[in-house]
Design a protein around this nucleic acid. Structure first.
Length: 494
RNA sequence: GCCAAGGUGGCAGAGUCUGGCCGAACGCAGCGGCCUGCAGAGCCGCCCAUCGCCGGUUCAAAUCCGGCCCUUGGCUCCA
């Protein structure tokens, strides 16, 4: 079965056919490292991660590039607050972001290139564009000439004539057409631009601007424009033509549109075969964003809820649809994840407790496993429908619970297959970590200590001392352990 | 104003491309019941849907066509 993807370029869901049948070149427009990453960013990361994982699972060799924009006035605006210079602030946030990504269980990209490390390649591409007549120099800055590239607007269906000017007010005078955009900006940062993004307790804008980096170029000292970086990093680390370009919905215009114009003008080749846009996460009816201040950071969400709950929340909505972040959706994600993880634990416990030679067969459970093997690939192949995939796993959870509840003799084989199914689709593909917390030595020690307390409590219960038994349970639950009694004795979760 | 994506139960959110299995999935909340010393988890059942509005096509429409209303995103930095 082939994957189908909704391609922004055509507006249609199309069969996915990479250039090379065995490998996929994937690029995600990464973060400008000027603020802590929030759950909205995580939405794009997690969905890209699952796309990566699914293509892996299908046997493709995935080469995945995700950039860091570390040259930007917003970064300079944090000088004195999060670092001593533009470069210092950027490195601090890169380190934080990498940590956030790891905490969410994202598969590593192949390369995480930074703008500051690619200035020579950027200069090369800008020179090529000038030589080919697609770009022109004005007062030490270089602009892309939109009128030279007739296909401009094909991604976003914008009409150049109707568009308002891009770029800063004072730069507009140097441009031939209002829609032209900067490839290279003369000189250093303007203190006013920095000031626009400055927090009250940061360094004065003019001091911060002085820490900004500049580079030599054929047009004099300057800094790269924003859009050119993705064109350069993508062609440098992948190829002139890539297979999938992922980005947030907000980047369609102008950023992605400009990337296409630059890249295709420079190389003469199609830039990306498929464009995938992740819709923005909403809270209270508006997008979550750093500038609106209505965000929850990845760091605090993972600390409070754990990566699995955050992933479940984000994967409970297909990437291209609206998704709401609220106390309610968070609580729901918590319950959905718990339900899956509990069922997994029950299946593992049952498998461990049954003789492998057991011949009992439960047709319902067996069928449920088979259904899951149909449903999850079906959902993932259909435009990476993670919501459907999750629903299929929840149905398997239901079947496992029914089996474990109703049987006194377990179906060893089906249970083992159920466990493997959770691990394959929930674990490898959706990136959830079932049965977490029992691996380390420290965790084992904690488990044994908990068992000891539960044994004590059992004795009190057998003796009918329920008051004392409940006290023990309350105390251990206060430590974050959930106790659940069953016919086979107490079990716990932490 | 222009471009794009959406409007499905109390909430959240699949299904729309490829019309009929949708009398609308999975889940949360709510209500019964089973289990249980209690609680929790789990199981079974129930409740809640004029699928934004109006019109059309069809034997058949949440799904296709036309018009309208509303929301979100973009047109300026943004995943």
């Amino acid at each position: 079965m082939t994957v189908h993807v909704t391609n922004t370029l055509t507006g249609e869901k199309e069969p996915f056919e990479p250039q090379d049948p065995d490998s996929v070149l994937l690029y995600l427009c990464g973060l400008t490292v000027s603020d802590p990453a929030h759950v909205g960013h995580a939405r794009a990361w997690v969905h890209t991660d699952v796309i990566h994982r699914w293509l892996d699972h299908k046997g493709y060799d995935v080469r995945h590039v995700e950039n860091f924009t570390d040259v930007n006035e917003k970064i300079a605006a944090r000088v004195g607050e999060d670092g001593d210079s533009e470069a210092d602030v950027a490195e601090n946030y890169v380190a934080e972001t990498v940590e956030d990504m790891r905490s969410l269980g994202l598969k590593r990209a192949t390369v995480y290139p930074r703008v500051s490390e690619h200035v020579p390649e950027i200069v090369d591409m800008v020179e090529t564009l000038v030589e080919k007549g697609y770009a022109y120099e004005a007062n030490g800055s270089v602009y892309f000439d939109v009128s030279e590239y007739p296909e401009y607007g094909k991604l976003s269906n914008q009409d150049v004539g109707e568009m308002e000017a891009q770029g800063a007010e004072d730069a507009r005078g140097e441009k031939r057409n209002p829609a032209d955009f900067a490839l290279w900006k003369a000189g250093s940062l303007d203190a006013d631009d920095v000031d626009e993004h400055r927090h009250a307790d940061a360094a004065p804008a003019d001091e911060a601007a002085e820490t900004a980096r500049t580079w030599d170029s054929p047009w004099g000292e300057g800094r790269p424009g924003w859009h050119i970086e993705c064109s350069v990093m993508s062609t440098t680390h992948l190829d002139d033509t890539i297979d999938i370009h992922v980005a947030g919905q907000d980047l369609v215009f102008p950023h992605n549109e400009n990337e296409i114009a630059q890249s295709e003008a420079a190389t003469g080749e199609q830039f990306s075969r498929y464009w995938v846009h992740v819709r923005l996460l909403e809270t209270a009816g508006e997008k979550m964003s750093s500038s609106l201040g209505n965000f929850a950071t990845v760091e605090e969400m993972v600390a409070e809820e754990g990566a699995d709950v955050v992933r479940t929340l984000l994967l409970s909505t297909a990437y291209h649809n609206r998704a709401t972040f609220s106390e309610e959706t968070l609580a729901e994600a918590r319950d959905r994840w718990e339900r899956l993880d509990r069922a997994y634990d029950r299946a593992v416990d049952a498998v461990d407790g049954v003789d492998a030679r057991t011949k009992v067969e439960d047709a319902d459970l067996r069928d449920a496993v088979a259904d899951t093997h149909e449903a999850v690939p079906g959902a993932m192949n259909d435009d990476f429908n993670t919501r459907e995939a999750l629903a299929a796993l929840l149905e398997l959870a239901n079947a496992v619970n029914r089996h474990v509840d109703d049987r006194d003799a377990y179906d060893y084989r089906s249970l083992r297959e159920a466990v493997e199914t959770f691990e394959e689709f929930g674990g490898d593909v959706l990136g959830l970590t079932f049965g977490d917390g029992s691996a380390s030595g420290e965790a084992r020690l904690a488990d044994e200590a908990i068992e000891l307390v539960l044994d004590l409590r059992e004795r009190e219960r057998e003796a009918g001392n329920y008051e004392r038994a409940d006290e023990l349970r309350d105390e251990i639950e206060a430590l974050g352990v959930t106790v659940e009694d069953s016919d086979d004795g107490p079990t716990f979760r932490r």
